[in-house]
């Protein structure tokens, strides 16, 4: 009998150890707790406050005017254009063009990773760029998507500023381009600075060619931008506030990643 009990002890220790090590690693908690409805309806729950990333909007009157202008442009120019573009250009071709320009944004993503001292992500970005540029035929094919280890979250310089502790400063809306903040706008300028199409690091000699490339990139991005815009504004009561808060939440998630 004693032998039986004693022989069981190591298994019990292993089982208990496994149970608590899992709990420790995953912060496993007792899931049998049931919430009373009142607890969930707590009107100023911290979860909602945390979700609502704050962004100051001192230029609200001007921003709203530009937002209305953009809204009219999206609905009356970009949306009809998108329908035709999607109809005429095959999906695979649009995807290839998107991949090509996405690959060219590697220097900005790399800079964003390095500024946050995320060397692992920087090396994954580099691996992704190398494979897409070679096996992916100059980036038109996303050959690196086959390798899960080479899919780092997208970084940019605005995110790096956020990770350093810089707040947004204030919110503003750019004509045609949409929402940004002082912090992210400065980051965007920094991104353009290291990218190979825009000045001053351009690898394209002719200014006409640069203009054409930028136009192709912008036009190819429009369908996706319109989709996202419609998803946010469609069910919104107040589209301006919905987009501003959506932007602030999205950037907060990206910085936190």
């Amino acid at each position: 009998m004693k032998i039986l009990i004693l022989s069981g002890i190591p298994f019990a220790i292993i089982a208990i150890g496994a149970h608590f090590s899992k709990a420790g690693a995953k912060d496993f908690v007792d899931l049998d707790d049931l919430l009373e409805m009142d607890e969930l309806l707590d009107d100023d729950g911290t979860e909602v406050r945390e979700g609502s990333a704050a962004i100051a909007d001192p230029l609200k009157v001007l921003n709203q005017a530009i937002f209305e202008f953009n809204d009219a442009a999206y609905k009356n120019i970009f949306q009809p254009f998108t329908r035709q573009y999607v109809r005429v250009i095959p999906k695979e071709a649009r995807k290839g063009i998107g991949n090509f320009f996405n690959n060219l944004e590697y220097p900005a993503r790399l800079t964003g990773s390095l500024l946050q001292f995320r060397f692992g992500r920087a090396s994954r970005e580099t691996g992704n760029f190398f494979i897409n540029t070679t096996a992916g035929m100059a980036g038109f094919m996303n050959a690196a998507q086959e390798f899960e280890a080479l899919q780092p979250p997208k970084e940019d310089i605005g995110q790096a500023f956020g990770a350093w502790g810089f707040k947004h400063g204030f919110y503003f809306v750019l004509p045609f381009l949409g929402p940004t903040s002082l912090r992210d706008f400065v980051g965007r300028i920094g991104g353009n600075y290291v990218e190979p199409i825009s000045e001053p690091s351009t690898q394209v000699d002719s200014s006409t060619d640069r203009l054409i490339l930028t136009a192709v990139e912008t036009v190819n991005d429009i369908p996706e931008i319109i989709d996202i815009y419609n998803s946010i504004t469609g069910p919104a009561l107040d589209p301006y506030t919905a987009v501003r808060d959506g932007y602030a939440q999205l950037r907060a998630v990206q910085v936190a990643e």
């Binding site: 609502s52 919104a236 009561l237 919905a242 501003r244 808060d245 939440q249 998630v253």
Partner: peptide
Amino acid sequence: DILVEGISMVSNYRKQFDE
């Protein structure tokens, strides 16, 4: 709550209702 690309629907609507 539903989060689309990390954007909480409840938080987003809360901002709109507050406004």
